[in-house]
């Protein structure tokens, strides 16, 4: 059994699909901050079989979790304060995501103009379809 300590303030991201925690680590920009982060992979789960968990010790205002709604809105976001879970956030699909994924269309203007932000817009909420703002290419969610 592996023991990882409690956090005083921050987030516990639970029910991450097994193997995706590292992607989320980078997409949330956790590699760029100097806080304590625990990446727990392949945890046994009754619901999912296997799952990943991310624990981040930080000010709760510090992270923009909107992008998680794009990655997987089934992830459970537990907000921790004073060592206790004070809120479970529901994730929704963001209307627009900026510089989270890149447009893969070689004919897109973003392929030649490097300074342009890669913007994807939610065009079909029912089927969770995002399209490039410039060329309308469908987003490929997983990297």
């Amino acid at each position: 059994m592996l023991n990882i300590g409690q956090i005083e303030e921050g987030f516990v991201l639970d029910h991450i699909r097994a193997g995706e925690s590292l992607d989320i680590y980078y997409k949330l920009g956790l590699d760029k901050i100097d806080n304590t982060v625990a990446i727990i992979k392949n945890v046994r789960s009754d619901k999912m079989g296997k799952k990943d968990i991310l624990k981040v010790e930080c000010d709760v205002e510090m992270l923009d979790l909107e992008v998680l709604g794009f990655i997987d809105h089934n992830i459970t976001v537990n907000v921790v304060k004073g060592g206790k879970i004070v809120e479970k956030k529901r994730l929704t699909l963001p209307k627009e995501i900026v510089n989270v994924i890149k447009c893969k269309n070689p004919r897109c203007i973003t392929s030649i103009e490097q300074e342009l932000p890669h913007i994807f817009v939610l065009t079909d909420p029912k089927h969770e379809v995002y399209r490039c703002k410039y060329c309308e290419e469908k987003a490929v969610k997983r990297i």
Binding site: N105, R107, C108, I109, T110, S111, I112, E113, L116, C132, K133, Y134, C135, E136, E137
Partner: peptide, 25 residues
Amino acid sequence: PKEGAPMVAASKSLIPVINAGDGGH
């Protein structure tokens, strides 16, 4: 020839921009 180029132009332009064709878009 690049798709979305006229939209980039429109976002920075001070005059009206008409897309006269952007690739296969």
